[in-house]
Design a binder for these strands. Structure first.
Length: 467
RNA sequence: GUCCCCUUCGUCUAGUGGCCUAGGACGCUACCUUUUCACGGUGGAAACAGGGGUUCAAACCCCCUAGGGGAUACCA
């Protein structure tokens, strides 16, 4: 049996760290088991749909190197991959009719208001709010009467009340629910004829031969409900895996802040896909962050070792992973990601390579590049020179070597300045650092000097004198 | 309210009755290296939510309390 997994978002928002974590789990699980990763759009709720959300999701997944094997965009053996399209061709209708024939589905005319009232009463009595099955056995006459009143029915799935819903869960072990406290017969088709995800998800999983459903913990009760449907359809129940939710750093709530932490924002914030994937994949495990490509982290990925407790998302840890990756990244590898982070310029690739190499260990995020770029090539507001360093800098201007600059230019210049000025150690180089970069800290000047070039260096020294 | 799940260093966690003086990773910190910062190296501080049991012995088993998460839709 080939492993087939799916990520099934609804096009109602953007991808964020929470749902990327489950997507990633699907991808890693598929890769590790030489399986197939399917992307399915669950777009049955047209009211909540957001313009262009779908396209944005495709692009985010590509950027993260989590491109699905089968998707609405790519197609595949089990197309279409949008619920709306599958609804159009009658997939769900067929199943609903079948369920009604075998007595596992029925029309229900209870209105939303009546349901709300019922729940209110139940709650007040300290009972769990649940549909009480009052229209389970309507006669034809009763149905006609409701119709005549202008009421439109929903279709509910009929539970086997005294059964248990059991399923295998890779992270939680064997899970079992009493069907009787699942909330009563669930609606599977709205009064406008559109099926709900509860039903459609099951039908698609069957038709698309999904073997493992890896999703968030917020779906556990849904799963129990859906297990009943799988069984009623005499279909094999997939293996599940419910991952604990991500919480805020303070451990409370899956907050707006987190939901707001979209892939788009991380991208614009200077984070690399590799860092995001590596960090998210490490959450829930004891191994520490393995930094690697999707392919590499997939080999280490063991879903059954994942913890069951909610996990706090710590942006500092992500930042750290990002920094580690940046520190020994080659220019050619970082190049595809630096658009927008490095100002427009017509510097040669060679020069940019040297620049990158001399600053990479000093940055954590791609957004940090700009500051260093400005120091090397642009304008900066630096610290002022000390009074007693003025004459020293004048000596520096005089002795500044002419181009071409090489790796040992700085060395040679320093020996000369040492003799001329009689200075050494910190007092030798610190005034130069301040004059040249405007700061007391930064990458090695020996590396920076060839990057700047003679003209910039001379201008900097001279303008430092003028201040 | 009701049902499900969870609670070990700051963070992710190892740990399934004696190997725990509680281990690792990241962070933090000190020192070393370094003509700055960063990188790197070597050390260090740092946790069993609380209370009751059971046992010769409990982070591990049982009960209670507190706290957190999820669910409770004609959303997904």
């Amino acid at each position: 049996m080939t492993v087939r997994v799916r990520f099934a978002p609804s096009p109602t928002g953007k991808l964020h760290v929470g749902n990327i974590r489950t997507t990633l789990a699907n991808v890693l699980f598929a890769k590790k088991n030489k399986g197939t990763f399917v992307l399915r759009m669950e777009d049955t709720d047209t009211e909540r749909e957001v313009q262009n959300a779908e396209q944005a999701m495709f692009r985010d997944l590509d950027w993260l190197d989590l491109t699905p094997d089968e998707s609405p965009e790519k197609g595949g053996k089990y197309a279409p991959y949008r619920m709306s399209e599958r609804a159009e061709r009658g997939d769900y209708k067929k199943v609903v009719e079948h369920l009604m024939e075998i007595g596992r589905a029925y029309e229900c005319f209870v209105t939303k208001d009546e349901l709300a009232l019922m729940r209110k009463i139940q709650r007040a009595a300290g009972k769990p709010p649940a549909y009480d099955g009052r229209h389970r056995n309507l006669t034809e006459e009763q149905k006609q009467k409701f119709m005549a009143e202008g009421k439109k029915p929903v279709i509910r799935f009929k539970f086997n009340d005294d059964e248990q819903a059991n399923f295998k869960d890779l992270v939680r072990g064997d899970v079992s629910f009493e069907v009787k406290n699942l909330g009563g017969d669930p609606v599977i088709v709205r009064d406008n004829g559109v099926p709900l995800f509860t039903l459609a998800g099951v039908v698609d999983d069957i038709n698309q031969k999904i073997t493992h459903a890896i999703r968030g913990e917020d779906h556990v009760t849904n799963t129990a409900v859906q297990v009943q449907i799988f069984e009623a359809l005499k279909a094999e129940v997939p293996t599940f895996a419910h991952m604990p939710m991500l919480t805020d750093i303070d451990g409370t709530k899956l907050s707006k802040r987190l939901d707001g932490l979209s892939i788009k924002e991380l991208r614009e914030g200077g984070y690399l896909p590799k860092a995001i994937n590596s960090y998210l994949a490490s959450l829930g495990f004891s191994t520490g962050v393995h930094i690697g490509s999707v392919e590499e982290i997939a080999q280490q990925f063991e879903l059954d070792k994942m913890g069951r407790a909610p996990v706090r998302f710590d942006i500092e840890q992500l930042k750290r992973a990002n920094a580690i990756i940046l520190h020994d990244m080659e220019y050619k590898d970082v190049k595809p990601f630096i658009d927008g982070f490095i100002p427009e310029n017509n510097l040669s690739t060679e020069k940019l390579e040297i620049f990158w190499k001399s600053i990479r260990e000093n940055i954590e995020l791609l957004t940090d590049i700009k500051e260093h770029f400005d120091i090397c090539f642009g304008v900066f507001n630096g610290e002022l020179l000390n009074e007693d360093d003025v004459s020293y800098i004048e000596q520096a201007v005089e002795t500044l070597p002419h181009e071409p600059y090489t790796n040992d230019t700085w060395q040679k210049w320093m020996s000369e300045l040492k003799q001329v000025s009689g200075r050494k150690g910190k007092s030798l180089f610190m005034p130069l650092r301040v004059a040249l970069t405007g700061q007391q800290h930064g990458p090695e000047l020996a590396n920076l000097l060839p990057v700047m070039g003679e003209e910039v260096a001379r201008n900097r020294l001279e303008s430092a004198l003028k201040k």
